[in-house]
Design a binder for these strands. Structure first.
Length: 899
DNA sequence: CCCTGGTCCCAACTT
DNA sequence: GGGACCAGGG
């Protein structure tokens, strides 16, 4: 009973109420993760529940991994079997990889394959989705100026998240634009089906549809999972909600944990009603409130609570903490965004130094976070941290898997797995260039459209029917061969190996006897580790908690029996499936990393980069090596190509948060679930936070306020709010004056302490105060500049020996009331700021060059006109340049002058 | 056909 | 600051 003693009465009740529906309303910092993990441990240790019959759903891989580790610590060593802790999306992928073919419908034509996705489906990411929409719009001849692909995509996603199909969207559309979108939605779906692809939304939708329509599959999962936990319940959308209902089955052993004040994903379809109406869905539900906050000081908690109390749509709660008082909420008003970032860097440098000195006395490791509304704000903070020589980590933004060289290789793998994936095919068909140009691709696309084939199919058809010039056909054949060889390699039947002597190559080809042996091994493996384990077993996560291959040992018989009893087609097919590229199937079969090496080698990808001989090219080569390593790790975990690709598709930017890092920069959304001793909440300006796109609708503003609440409650000891009086919206534009965020005014003034220099006088350029007492009534440009000179400098700053005054910008002497003053201000900080020039008309009368005339070209210098073709501006003239030879130039464009 | 450089337009959060 | 797109030159 030891670990239960660490819980307060409410937490304990939440842990011990194991049966029937439970809603745990867990305020920020109230020990939510602790309750979930203890609850799982309690079920296993005290209730004798089999670990593998517990399913916990989270939103991020990070949360799942952490939960798994903590459960492991509590019940470690007790059993090889593990509870299933997974994100919604990963769970759905695994459900679909196992049984999606149960959704297929027989083809009308006998002998034809059934219609619908196969297990080899690929996952389309945001940019793939955009490409599909663009191409569909092009085919329908729609103007992408009036209706941007982006807008179409977001409407399609909206419809999916509300479980509307194209027909339903069409029926409820009240304007021609929505009708058009419904039409596009329909076409989009057809394209994805043709490509055997699913987008992110589909993963949830199709898994839900599968459980809904295929009773045997649903029954299997209902038998399999007896206890269901859902984290971040306030952020579930409609498909997730329905999935939950179906997994809860008749038993209703569902435990939802959430906080309506932290619902920040309504734009992704999250429906706050799910949490507000849990009691309606499950009338026998027990509601437990966790209101003791263990994280923050009273000042922080009070400030955050007061802000969020301005919302109407909430259940309301009273969070309390035993950490009385605490440091006041800091507020710093910077003259501009750059200064705001320097202030944060300076403050963090000091904080880390002091914490370093105090380290001997023990305590929490010093960690600080800078939070912002939009990822583009990170740039200024990164620059400031670098100037202070501080090590930091940025969460989110550009992901490894979004880099072009990585996307290229992943696309190759996707095509090899599923050649019908036309989006990936288009990406790699001429990457690196192999002579397949625009006109060739156009021809194939037209053929695909005419025949209803995928691009890959049309490509084969074009070769067969010799529809293109010989050169193009040869190029296409070489591409076809490349993909075919890679596929053969994956299947273990590839004969030719580059860079290998024929002898070793032959040695690598499995003999019929070897193949037979491998097949037997595979069959044996299938027996001891049934298909469920193949679908759910070795998986993409390093965390052993995810590896629940063994979890099926006890329940496999039941599972398989159920499948065959009910006659689920996939189970039958599984028995006779071809040899997968698994390591245990025989050493001759290649892993994903070997496949990648083969591709890189055969395409000459790295050789071409090496030839570029630029730092960028070498960093891209490094990235490719990293990808090969990742694939090797994947192989070591026993994953197949499918699983490697699923991992690549589902890994999120936010998953790379590293708690060992002392300084973390990230968006407010990415910060959910984390805590830091010191937190900066930046950019508190109307239009930025709350964001301009939310300010029209009260519900949206409430969500921004919840986001503010989430940000504030990340802070344990100190919270600092900052704002820039002038901010540049785009890199080069004029800085714009900002209005302080409404959320600033919602923080009780007595809790606030102003940081930086005290400002008094008022200057016309600043805002003139909205006035909560104790807040600056006006902005004094002259005195508000954050001064470095009078602060301690970080050690690294001084280390280079440059006199401080040389490096450090001086304060602006004038208010920003004219464009010249602004330019001067930026010049004083060594920043470029160009005053826009009035365009000057080009002098006319220098056109109409004739043969024999001397002309001057900006690049080629002086030359003699040799020949003239055509008339007017369009005329092409050929010029003889002494150093460059003959050049044919269009007179209108070439900047020729009389010499 | 391929590469480059200029221009235009954009810029919210994320599985 | 930067990605997408286009047109020109090689």
């Amino acid at each position: 009973m030891s670990f239960l003693d660490q819980l307060n009465p409410q937490q304990r009740e939440a842990v011990e109420t194991t049966d029937g529906p439970v809603l745990i309303l867990a305020g920020a910092g109230s020990g939510k993760t602790r309750v979930i993990t203890y609850r799982i441990a309690y079920l296993i240790e005290h209730k004798g529940v089999m670990p593998e019959s517990i399913l916990a759903m989270t939103f991020t891989n990070k949360a799942a991994a952490e939960m798994g580790e903590r459960v492991e610590k509590l019940v470690g060593g007790l059993s090889i079997a593990k509870p299933v802790i997974s994100t919604f999306h990963s769970f759905c992928v695994r459900v679909l990889r196992r049984d999606i073919e149960a959704l297929q419908i027989p083809s009308a034509t006998p002998g034809q394959p059934p219609i619908g996705h196969t297990k080899k489906f690929v996952i389309y990411d945001e940019s793939d989705m955009q490409s599909v929409v663009k191409s569909v719009m092009k085919h329908l001849g729609l103007d992408d100026k009036q209706l941007t692909p982006r807008a179409v995509l977001s409407r399609i996603s909206w419809a999916k998240n509300h479980m509307l199909d194209p027909q339903e969207l069409y029926l409820q559309s009240a304007d021609p634009k929505t009708e058009k979108i419904a039409h596009l939605f329909e076409e989009y779906r057809k394209e994805l089906r043709k490509a055997n692809a699913l987008d992110f939304d589909d993963l949830l939708l199709e898994a839900t549809r599968l459980l809904k329509t295929a009773a045997p599959v649903r029954e299997y999962y209902n038998r399999r999972f007896q206890y269901l936990l859902i984290d971040e319940y306030q952020d579930t959308n409609r498909p997730q909600y329905e999935l939950m209902r179906m997994l809860a089955g008749e038993r209703h052993n569902v435990c939802a944990v959430g906080d309506e004040d932290q619902s920040i994903y309504s734009w992704r379809g999250a429906d706050i009603r799910n949490i507000l109406e849990f009691e309606k869905d499950f009338p026998e539900a027990k509601i437990i409130r966790l209101e003791q906050n263990y994280r923050s000081t009273q000042n922080i908690l009070q400030a955050a609570s007061t802000v969020v109390a301005n919302n109407i749509r909430r259940k309301g709660k009273n969070l309390w903490t035993s950490r009385q008082g605490g440091t006041k909420i800091g507020y710093y008003e910077a003259p501009d965004g750059e200064n705001e970032a320097l202030f944060a860097a300076d403050h963090i440098a000091k904080y880390l130094r002091e914490a370093g000195r105090a380290e001997h006395s023990g305590g929490e490791t010093p960690r600080a976070a800078v939070l912002y509304r939009t990822n583009s704000q990170s740039r200024l903070f990164e620059e400031a941290m670098r100037r202070y020589g501080l090590k930091y980590k940025v969460v989110g933004g550009f992901s490894f898997y979004e880099r072009s060289e990585i996307k290229d290789m992943i696309s190759y793998l996707k095509v090899i797995q599923n050649p019908d994936d036309s989006i990936s095919l288009l990406r790699v068909i001429n990457t690196p260039t192999r002579g397949i140009g625009k006109s060739t691709i156009d021809t194939i696309e037209r053929l695909a459209l005419e025949t209803g084939l995928s691009l890959w199919g049309a490509l084969g058809e074009a070769i067969r029917r010799q529809l293109l010039p010989q050169r193009a056909l040869a190029a296409l054949k070489s591409f076809q061969q490349l993909i075919g060889d890679a596929q053969a390699m994956l299947a273990g039947t590839f004969v030719e190996q580059l860079e290998e002597s024929m002898e070793t190559a032959v040695a690598r080809i499995p003999s019929p006897a070897q193949l037979q042996e491998a097949q037997t091994l595979q069959a044996a493996a299938d027996d001891s580790m049934p298909d469920d384990a193949a679908a759910f077993g070795p998986n993409e996560f390093e965390n052993p908690a995810f590896d629940f291959g063994g979890a099926y040992a006890g329940s496999d018989e039941e599972g398989d029996e159920a499948d065959s009893r009910a006659g689920v087609p996939p189970a039958v097919e599984r028995a006779s499936r071809p040899l997968p590229g698994q390591q245990d199937a025989g050493a001759t079969l290649p892993s994903t990393s070997e496949l990648l090496k083969f591709l890189i080698d055969r395409t000459g990808y790295i050789k071409l980069l090496e030839a570029e001989d630029t730092p960028e090219a070498f960093s891209r080569i490094e990235n490719l090596r990293e990808l090969v390593n990742a694939a090797a790790d994947s192989r070591d975990r026993g994953e197949t190509l499918d699983e490697f690709l699923d991992h690549a598709a589902l890994i999120a930017d936010t998953d790379d948060y590293d708690e060992r890092s002392q300084i973390t920069l990230m968006s407010l959304h990415a910060a959910k679930g984390l805590e830091f001793p010191l937190v900066f909440l930046s950019g508190l300006e109307e239009g930025l936070f709350p964001h301009s796109r939310t300010m029209l609708q009260p519900d949206d503003v409430e969500e921004e306020r919840r986001l503010c609440y989430v940000g504030m409650t990340r802070a344990m000891d100190q919270l600092i709010l900052t704002r820039a009086v002038y901010r540049r919206r785009y890199g080069t534009d004029l800085p714009e004056a900002s209005v302080p965020s409404r959320f600033l005014e919602e923080v009780p003034a007595p809790l606030i302490e102003e940081l930086g220099r005290r400002r008094t006088a008022s200057v016309s350029t600043g805002y003139v105060g909205t006035a909560a007492p104790g807040r600056p009534a006006a902005y004094d440009v002259e005195r508000s500049h954050y001064s470095y000179e009078d602060e301690d400098q970080s050690a690294s700053w001084k280390r280079d020996g440059t006199p401080a005054s040389r490096q450090k910008p001086t304060a602006p002497a004038k208010p920003y009331n004219s464009i010249e003053n602004i330019a001067e201000f930026f010049a004083s900080r060594g920043k470029k700021f160009t005053i826009p020039k009035t365009p000057v008309e080009e002098p006319a009368g220098k056109r109409g060059f004739r043969p024999g005339q001397k002309v001057r070209h900006p690049k080629y210098g002086e030359g003699t006109v040799y020949q003239r073709e055509g008339e007017g501006e369009e005329a092409k003239i050929t010029v003889q340049f002494p150093r460059f030879g003959l050049k044919k130039l269009v007179e209108k464009y070439a900047q020729l002058e009389r010499a």
